[in-house]
């Protein structure tokens, strides 16, 4: 499903030396895998995730999603691919503060133009129910706890029934109990929906939730991949 071929990303800032974030990474991720990418801060794991999502252009190398070269697409096509195939769970609070939980979950449907508002809201309500927030449909992000906000984000990531879920440190701002709840939720999504998940984390204990673990250091994949379970 995902193919990276010698992908490199170097950040160039004005009046500062270039910073190589990822270099020479090749990786294949098959449909249905739950890959956990670990590594210390600055190891390049978030950059790798952004490269896979097409959120940043690689300095060199190829990124393919379902055999499509991501950077051969126009911005419109790339955005549509992201909208329909990829769900995101970010590390930071990523809900729009001016929208309710229901509106936040339904937001990606606005850019896909596939269905009407009523259908989108019905599906968003079902997803919020699935993540245990059926009583928070009209709540604004400021009225939700960090854990609840992250559940809304998970629900939002599923609204367009994606084939791939990219999660960047999804539990880094949560307490231990909520972290376990969110991880259990992601695992359940992986099992019940068969969605391919790529999760980046600096917490090595979370590796057990995936089917494969990859460790990154200095912008490259270290010691190949480790199969956790199948």
């Amino acid at each position: 499903m995902i193919q990276l071929e010698r992908v490199a990303k170097t950040y160039t800032l004005k009046n500062k030396p270039a910073v190589p974030a990822v270099h020479g990474v090749s990786l294949n991720v098959e449909q249905g895998e739950f890959v956990v990418i670990t590594g210390r801060s600055g190891s390049g794991k978030t950059t790798l995730l952004n490269l896979i999502a097409g959120l940043t252009r690689p300095t060199s190398g190829q990124v393919l999603i379902d055999n499509v070269h991501l950077w051969s697409l126009s911005d419109q096509e790339q955005s549509l691919l992201r909208n329909r195939k990829i769900g995101f769970v970010f590390q930071f609070p990523s809900l729009l503060p001016s929208l309710t939980a229901l509106e936040n979950v339904a937001l990606p449907t606005v850019f896909g133009h596939r269905e009407g508002k009523r259908d989108a809201h019905m599906r968003a309500a079902r997803l919020l129910d699935e993540v245990g927030l059926s009583d928070k449909l009209s709540a604004y992000p400021r009225h939700l706890s960090a854990g609840q906000q992250q559940r809304v984000v998970v629900a939002r990531s599923l609204i367009n029934q994606p084939e791939l879920l990219l999660a960047d440190e999804p539990t880094s701002n949560l307490d231990e109990q909520t972290e376990q709840e969110i991880m259990a939720l992601l695992q359940e999504i992986h099992v019940t929906r068969g969605i391919t998940i790529l999760m980046v984390t600096h917490t090595t204990q979370l590796v057990s939730f995936g089917t494969r673990a990859i460790e990154m250091a200095g912008g490259t994949i270290r010691n190949g991949s480790m199969v956790v379970k199948n």
């Binding site: 959120l55 419109q76 549509l80 909208n83 995101f88 930071f92 850019f111 939002r156």
Partner: peptide, 16 residues
């Protein structure tokens, strides 16, 4: 900025 980055990640094209 971050909100706009999120919108782009969720599939909003630049023009949108």
């Amino acid at each position: 900025r971050r909100e706009i980055g999120v919108l782009r990640a969720l599939g909003a094209p630049r023009t949108t």
